[in-house]
Write a protein that binds this DNA or RNA. Structure first.
Lengths: 205, 205
DNA sequence: CGCTTAAACGGACCGAGGTCCGCTTCTATT
DNA sequence: AATAGAAGCGGACCTCGGTCCGTTTAAGCG
């Protein structure tokens, strides 16, 4: 049984059918349109389906759930942000001092999180960003912390540094407590300084 | 126009009717029963109503929404916890060194958050604890930080210290990344040490 | 004790998320 | 080009959160 064409092994999912792909972009565009014109609450699965001119089942097939659709909408932004971090201009992108990159990270994350707060909130996982997005950002922060010579449990420190920038926390501070965004950012920078600062002389138990 | 009986001013809401009060406790008990026996997903509003032997509308009248019901269920725990902080035994309660109280705070909050994760997640506000609960805890942490001589934007530092203990973050770490609880707690203590530690010599911009 | 009234009650009803299954359409293969 | 089979499609259908309104009932008052 000769089978000369061996498994390409990548792309194991048999590739999306052309009509499916067409519908996917149509649906994303429709959803974006609805978000922009009528607000996020108008983005019902049926409305999106109708706007895209397909059946409701198709929306669920493509995106699994409403949360999945929201996550897909966020994906564009998230990807762009990752690109900016990996290969964009400093200080967010490579080339700047790690400390400046860290500050830039905080600022840009704060901004985009607030900007897409409702999308994030509706994207499930209790308002936290998707796993993939989270992982990338966490990795980046770990890298910067390492670069800055921080010692300790880096994954957890990175997480601690990112936690105050998560949507629910920011929501509480900005929308409920009414804090100014600038002040929140200052506070975050202070936190970063305390984490990075070599003052960790282990005086406490 | 004499009006000798002056406004008692407290209790301005005309006090709950007896049948209403009876139904409230019946509903809470029914909901607790359902949570314990069948898991949180079985706690539909209709199921709770049926279990308590009342109509569905009554559940909504008492608790506003499903999230409200969950919050009410959490309230018991939360109140007990607040009491423990305010007048329970050290180190969580008063009497111990502020630093020890802070560590105890972290531990107990970590524990209860994980324990009631699903309730919290279903209690709305994107998985963050209710405003009242949050405010109390934030106040407590601020107090402890002040006691420890921490300077800076205390409200924000307190928030930064509490953020890693919020349910969504812990969910990510423990349930998805598979981190051990002990390690998370260690990490949190390290964070606290860095915040409290006087090393904040303002070396960074 | 009966009356009044405001509150509470119940369950029919609605809308939206999510599932299912018979039908249609694409794609690969010969 | 014809065909087989998988993938996609659509919309009826289900469940559940949330609303509404006609009916019932508790509580204060004469």
């Amino acid at each position: 049984m000769p089978d000369p064409v061996l498994l390409p092994m990548a792309d194991q999912r048999p590739r999306e059918r052309s009509d499916a792909a067409r519908n996917r972009v149509a649906l994303l565009e429709a959803a974006t349109r609805l978000v922009d014109h009528c607000g996020i609450d108008a983005v019902t699965m049926e409305a999106v389906a109708a706007e895209a001119g397909v059946g409701k089942g198709t929306v669920f097939r493509r995106f699994e759930s409403r949360a999945g659709l929201m996550a897909a909408l966020l994906d564009h932004t998230e990807t762009a942000w990752q690109t900016a971090v990996m290969s964009g201009p400093p200080p967010l992108g490579p080339g700047a001092d790690p400390w400046d990159r860290l500050l830039a990270f905080g600022g840009s994350r704060l901004e985009t999180t607030l900007q897409h707060a409702d999308l994030i909130r509706n994207a499930g996982r209790a308002g936290v960003r998707s796993i993939a997005a989270y992982s990338f950002a966490a990795l980046h922060v770990r890298y910067l912390l390492a670069e800055l010579g921080v010692t300790g449990d880096l994954p957890l420190l990175a997480s601690a540094l990112m936690a105050p920038l998560e949507a629910p926390v920011l929501d509480q501070q900005v929308r409920i407590d009414g804090l100014q965004v600038d002040r929140v950012l200052e506070g975050w920078a202070d936190l970063a300084r305390r984490i990075v600062s070599p003052g960790g002389g282990a005086t406490r138990t």
